[in-house]
Amino acid sequence: MWRNIASNGLTMLILAFAGIAGLIAWGQNRFIAPGPLAEAICVRVAPGSSMAALSEDLETRGAVTNGWIFRVGADYTERSSKLKAGSFLIPEQASMDEIVTAVTRGGASTCGTEIVYRIGVAKAEIQIREMDPTTGRFSADTKFVPGEGEVPKEYTDLVSQSDTRFRVSTAPGATSWQIVDSLKKADFLSGEISEIPPEGLLAPDSYEIRAGADRAALLAKMQDAQEKRLADAWERRADDLPYDTAEEALIMASIIEKETGVPDERSLVASVFINRLRQGMKLQTDPTVIYGVTKGEGILGRGLRRSELREKTPYNTYVIDGLPPTPIANPGRDAIEAAVNPGESDFVFFVADGTGGHAFAKTLSEHNANVQKWRKLEADRAAEPAEPAAQ
């Protein structure tokens, strides 16, 4: 009798263990299997939130089939305590495991509403933008210039939220003075800026920050990024460049940046300046002269005067030989690459062609013909009747 009881008990125990093992295997499969989402969504995790609260939100929104399995899976993989605050893009059919990874790995938020401070060459503008998770595209319906006009209530409300994400985006070609001046006007930043960083050493990029971030610390981050970019590019430089240091390459990159905004032209523009240096020609580039006039403090807003083109200054490349003493702006990664690995050409001249790009020439006669075409185009445009004002 006791033997039968023991045998039956052992059988039941084996069956129980088998059932538990089956349940675990079933849960593991559900955890890594494709999820039920038909289209991508954006999930916001508030500061201080828990994996339990998140699982309920995900189950309600149809992102997971079982919130309990989601929580157990996060616990089992030891990620429950690593939940990060932010807004995270969850793609369609994302598994529970992939969702846990998205909300615990850290780094920049990948969707949602954010405040972007765009520092450009001509102006600085704050944008409030929202990403459509189904397309991955941002739309910015609210825009304003700090210090000009009324501040939108939407901005004021977002700034007061502790988890609002901010992004400072600096455009290639902006000067260090322009970037510093713009950062001083950003009311979501803190701290003083004791001095303007050296020209050219602030990496144009998009930097995600939190409200109250220190201005000087952000500038230091920009400078570290640019120094690394320059050092990496200089290590991969072409042979026989007509300059000997990375600092000189940065000066060249800044000139390239200011001369063209067309990505495909950068290597050609670089080749023109390289050829001029090799042949002992003067660089003769307007942006350097303009920098000598403005010192990088804003835009000139007018054409260069004849007296400015003739005056001997360290930045007047119509008068001096070689490169100016410093960069004239903060060049982007592509301009730096063009400066250290220029294209191969016989061109020594270029002029605007009216399309946003340039016409290149090997000889002065070819160049003069291109200049005449450009001047005719300018004259034709000036003669065109103005568009009637909208009523």
Score class of each variant (00 low, 15 high):
N4K: 11
G9D: 08
I24C: 14
A25D: 09
R30H: 12
P34F: 08
A46Q: 09
A46P: 09
S49W: 00
S49P: 02
L58W: 01
T60R: 13
A74T: 04
K82L: 11
K84G: 03
I90D: 00
Q93H: 14
S95M: 04
T101A: 11
T104I: 02
T104P: 01
G136Q: 05
A140S: 15
D141S: 11
E150C: 10
F166M: 07
V168M: 04
T170K: 02
A174C: 14
W177Y: 14
I179L: 07
L183N: 00
K185A: 15
G191Q: 05
I193C: 01
P197G: 03
R215M: 08
R215A: 06
A225L: 12
Q226N: 10
K228V: 13
D240Q: 13
T245N: 09
A246V: 01
L250N: 02
I251D: 00
A253P: 02
I255C: 03
P263F: 10
D264A: 15
L304W: 05
R305K: 12
R306T: 14
T313D: 03
P314M: 10
L323Y: 01
L323E: 01
R333N: 15
D334F: 12
I336R: 06
G343E: 10
F360I: 10
E384L: 15
A386S: 10
Q391V: 15
